[in-house]
Write a protein that binds this DNA or RNA. Sequence first.
DNA 1: TCGCTGTATATCAGATTACTAGGTAGCGCC
DNA 2: GGCGCTACCTAGTAATCTGATATACAGCGA
Lengths: 113, 113
Amino acid sequence: MPGRIRGQLLKGTTTLLVLTVLRDGELYGYEIAQRIRARSGGAFFPSEGSLYPALHALEADGALEASWQESDRGPRRRYYKITKSGLGMLAEHVQEWAAFSLGMGQAVGERNR
Amino acid sequence: MPGRIRGQLLKGTTTLLVLTVLRDGELYGYEIAQRIRARSGGAFFPSEGSLYPALHALEADGALEASWQESDRGPRRRYYKITKSGLGMLAEHVQEWAAFSLGMGQAVGERNR
DNA sequence: TCGCTGTATATCAGATTACTAGGTAGCGCC
DNA sequence: GGCGCTACCTAGTAATCTGATATACAGCGA
């Protein structure tokens, strides 16, 4: 499997990735990062410095609802749940990604027969 | 056809798009932007503020060679030609895009059923 | 007990890079 | 002269990722 992808291409993808894994249910930050890593085959693994600000912004936007919960082993966790508004935002981002991916495929795609 | 895509998702794509259209041959800046627009079905149309600095950076990196040429109608044009080094960079960026696109597809793709 | 590893959250400086907005300038047309 | 299109360039702004740093709890081995 290829290594972790980093750099400018990742800009703007964190929101989509976070909302995507939260379709599965309520998760906490650390777990969200691991899910993203697992689902992408190791290609994506958001750093803490990008994940946590993104979660805070999504909560402030009303896309996520959060609550503290104690853990029996380790520090407390902040669980995030996607809201109805967040589901709408997810749909938009999925569509945006599809258009972006399509356009890049057309632009970069082979032209030579 | 969908509108022009803008924002964070575009980060890191200008280099790939420019090198891609310059596979076709020698082009000048304004023309490069139009080719990118045409090839992507209107999805991408780099602004001048991102295109020209990117061209200068690629030239400084040795990926492009440039020369001024007069035009019979309108101002002079700066033509860019991809170098051998630029072709190598293009191959890298194409591969990077493929890995990125694959990873996003896996991460976002449908999991249900 | 001390230190290390793993878990878990948080913030900041620095870097990258796209966008807007503005400037300069040639050419054709009315 | 003014307008629109062509053609180049740059400064400032905004977004956001990386990497470093900080705090803190739990388990394990020396």
